[in-house]
């Protein structure tokens, strides 16, 4: 499996990992049977801006590095803007992913969407 330098560096030093206390929303995606599980926590302020993001991931190098990237991309964005982040944005931030690992970028986007959905539900 050939990963880019950016993937390896991100994997070595992932940003924003760990549990978040009292998050505004949680997105849990993936399945341990398939080998990828990603939990994404967001904290949203009154202006609907994502102030903080954290992740916990069980998975391969690609799963961990895409998790880290999605937290960086979403942090500081309004939830409206955050929903516009695409899997291509995630892959580009890493300088590319091996073809068979592209699904990991989809997983990261799904987790963010789920966390935002969860936030909206809790708000109601």
């Amino acid at each position: 499996m050939e990963y880019t330098k950016k993937v390896i560096n991100t994997f070595r030093n992932p940003h924003n990992y760990g549990k978040m206390r009292n998050p505004s929303g949680i997105g849990k995606v993936g399945n341990p049977v398939c080998g990828d599980v990603l939990w994404l926590y967001i904290r949203v302020d009154k202006k609907e801006v994502i102030k903080d993001v954290k992740f916990e991931t069980f998975g391969c190098v690609a799963a961990i590095s895409t998790s880290s990237v999605i937290t960086d991309l979403a942090k500081g964005k309004s939830i409206k803007k955050a929903l516009e982040i695409t899997k291509e944005d995630v892959v580009d931030s890493l300088g590319g992913l091996p073809n068979i690992k592209l699904h990991c970028s989809v997983l990261a986007i799904e987790a963010l969407h789920k966390a935002i959905e969860d936030y909206k539900k809790c708000k109601k």
Binding site: C34, G35, D36, G59, C60, I64
Partner: peptide
């Protein structure tokens, strides 16, 4: 609680070459 490919790549970064039966690899 951990996945084999991540483990093998981390070990490789530390100079140790092993292998795994994980699906991800």
């Amino acid at each position: 609680f951990i996945e084999g490919e991540s483990l093998v790549v981390q070990l490789d970064l530390a100079g140790i070459a092993c292998s795994t039966g994980s699906a991800c690899s």
